[in-house]
């Protein structure tokens, strides 16, 4: 038992310190010592990434620390994913299709949101920047998305978010729509009938959790 405690706390630390190699190595060791992927995720990875988020909110951590923690989490997940099998479904908080809208090449904010969603248990399909509404709809249908996210940084491209909301509705998709980007305000999100809006990557995670019906678990 003491051994496994040590192993998991090492993995937790690896995530927290953004050590990708260490995280992958310890995830492999966890499987080798007979722990299930699910147990490893629940005992080390999720607490690790959650602590990183908390530290960020407390002002202790800065973005490079948060993002490298997310990458370490991802590296460990890459080891665990193949053996997750049936458990995977129950683990994923939901499937998210995300992109910057057509006519807009600003992708840094969008990528940050995608990274944080993925580190926090969402399955993220990042379609990149300059993506037409029609392609987002296609992808959302294809993967049966829970959430479609659109970023827009230009006043000229914000209307694509409205088109997306309308298209999701008229295609009869069950996906919720979340929007963001520097010019996007709560008022705009309400006006176009989006289901959610956030103005930074961590609150995007919280809003996404609420939207797909999962509360931040324990």
């Amino acid at each position: 038992m003491a051994d496994s405690d040590e192993l998991f706390s090492g993995l937790y630390q690896a995530v927290l310190s953004g050590d990708e190699d260490g995280a992958a190595r310890l995830a492999t060791r966890a499987l080798d010592s007979g722990h299930s992927a699910l147990e490893t995720i629940e005992r080390a990875l999720i607490p690790g990434i959650r602590e990183a988020g908390d530290l960020w909110e407390e002002g202790e951590y800065f973005l490079p620390e948060l993002v490298t923690a997310a990458q370490a989490m991802k590296a460990a997940m890459a080891v665990l994913q193949p053996v997750l099998g049936a458990e995977a479904k129950s683990l994923s908080l939901g499937r998210v299709v995300i992109a910057t809208v057509e006519g807009d090449i600003h992708d840094i904010g969008k990528s940050l949101v995608a990274t944080m969603l993925s580190a926090n248990g969402f399955e993220v399909i990042d379609e990149g920047a300059g993506v037409p509404v029609s392609r987002l709809i296609e992808r959302a249908r294809e993967v049966d998305a829970d959430l479609v996210c659109a970023s827009a940084l230009l006043t000229t491209t914000m209307p694509r978010q409205r088109e997306l909301v309308n298209a999701v509705r008229s295609a009869g998709l069950r996906a919720k729509v979340m929007v963001g980007g520097a010019p996007v305000t709560r008022g705009w999100a309400e006006q176009i009938g989006a289901d959610g809006h956030a103005d930074n990557a961590l609150s995007a995670v919280n809003v996404a959790r609420t939207l797909v019906g999962h509360r931040a678990a324990g």
Partner: peptide, 11 residues
Amino acid sequence: VPSDVPESFGD
């Protein structure tokens, strides 16, 4: 960037 003309026309 004025909000009272269509966005594509703003520039």
